[in-house]
C-alpha cells in the first residue's frame, strides 16, 4: 500500500522475479489442467479438480498481477463481494432449475412462432 504523509503517490513496484515466477506457475497449472483430463476421477470430480486449478490460477493473477495483496483491503472486499453475489445467483438459480426440471412434461413446447 503506497502512501505518504505529504499526499504524494509512491508506487509499489512488484519485483520482477515475482511476476515471472507467477507466470511460470500459471503455465504449469495450465499444463496440469489439460493433463488431468485424461484421468477419470469419477462423478464430477474432474470438474472439481479443474475448478480448483482455475481458482488457484485466478487467485495468483488477482493477488500478484493485479496487486491486490499490496492494495487497499477495501478493493479486496469489493472483488470478493462481486464473486459472492455471482455465487449466490448461480446457486439459487441452479437449485431452482434442478428442482423443477423433473416436473416438466416431456414434449410440451412453446412453439415460438405460430401454430398452424
Amino acid at each position: 500500500m503506497a502512501s505518504s504523509t505529504d499526499g504524494k503517490h509512491v508506487p509499489h513496484v512488484v519485483p520482477l522475479w515475482i511476476l515471472i515466477g507467477v507466470l511460470a506457475i500459471l503455465l504449469i497449472l495450465t499444463w496440469a489442467t489439460v493433463a488431468v483430463t485424461s484421468f477419470d476421477f469419477g462423478s464430477n470430480m474432474n470438474l472439481v479438480v479443474a475448478m480448483v486449478i482455475a481458482v488457484i490460477k485466478a487467485a495468483l493473477v488477482v493477488m500478484f498481477f493485479m496487486h491486490l495483496v499490496w492494495d487497499r483491503p477495501f478493493n479486496t472486499v469489493i472483488f470478493v463481494s462481486a464473486l459472492a453475489f455471482v455465487g449466490l445467483f448461480i446457486i439459487l438459480a441452479l437449485l431452482d432449475t434442478g428442482q423443477y426440471q423433473p416436473t416438466m412434461i416431456p414434449g410440451y413446447t412453446a412453439a415460438g412462432g405460430v401454430v398452424p
Binding site: D6, R72, L94
Partner: peptide, 30 residues
C-alpha cells in the same frame, strides 16, 4: 487535494468497474 487521493480514487473506481464486469459475466456463468 493530493495525487495520492486521486490515485486511490481511480483505483477504487476501477475495482468497482471490475466488479460490474464480474457480475455481467456471472450471468453467463449462471
Amino acid at each position: 487535494d493530493t495525487p495520492e487521493q486521486q490515485f486511490t480514487s481511480s483505483k477504487l473506481g476501477m475495482w468497482l468497474f471490475l466488479a460490474t464486469e464480474v457480475l455481467m459475466f456471472g450471468g453467463l456463468f449462471c
